[in-house]
Amino acid sequence: MTLDQLLVEAGEHLDDLIDARRASTDLAPVRHPRGPRIAVRFAAAAVALAGVVGLALVVGRHDATPSSPPESSAPTVVTPPHVGPVSVFDTGADLAIFIKPGAAQDQAFLIQEEAAHAVAAIGTLTKVEYLPTDSAMAEARRVNGAGAASSGVRPESTPTLLRISATLKAGATFADVQPVLLQLPNVLTVWTRATGAVGQYPLCCYQDGNAVPQTTLAPLATGPTDSTLPPPVSGANG
């Protein structure tokens, strides 16, 4: 028998085997070796799930804990707000001019021009900052701390604040311009860093539409570093 004949016979035999197998599998469901595949898929899914959960935990923990500054950076002292002495000068200003509540805005601008002119005579202006009522109220709450809301921090009793910074000439002080500024109309009071470095917002000087004597200003426990300095001078019109 030739190889070709043998191959034809092998084909017939293979057909018989196929038919026999189909007949046997018709009676019973075909079983596929899927067990290991399913197990591996479960394992892969479990590993992926654990990875996702782990990543979420790591990210959550990272977000929850504030990042510490690098060790190499210079140590910095951070004072939380409303802790310790707070001053109207802690923004770096040298001169604080409080304008009467209710004064017209053009009056405030006039005072600003006069103050800038006066300070320019004894030094070089570096910053002139005008705080309108809203900002001045926020400043009053910040300086006066808790309870400020019930101690007169209202639009009608909050002075407008004018902050000025300058580099003074040798021998000059902000006290030199203080009397001039106090003579300006609608100026409530004028503080300098030297005389009122730490002080409350002078709400007490003008409350409920009435002027309050300067002497009623409550001294702070943590007052100026130089206790011998005179108290802030009240304005002539205040």
Binding site: L7, E9, A10, H13, L14, D16, L17, P33
Partner: peptide, 28 residues
């Protein structure tokens, strides 16, 4: 993937009509 030893056709010696089964199995 999961068959370490794959059996193709040679594990069965089922009778077939008009076929020389031993020769066919040998060829397979």
């Amino acid at each position: 993937r999961w068959r370490a030893r794959r059996t193709l056709f040679s594990d069965t010696g089922a009778p077939s009509a008009n076929v020389d089964v031993p020769a066919a199995v040998d060829l397979l």
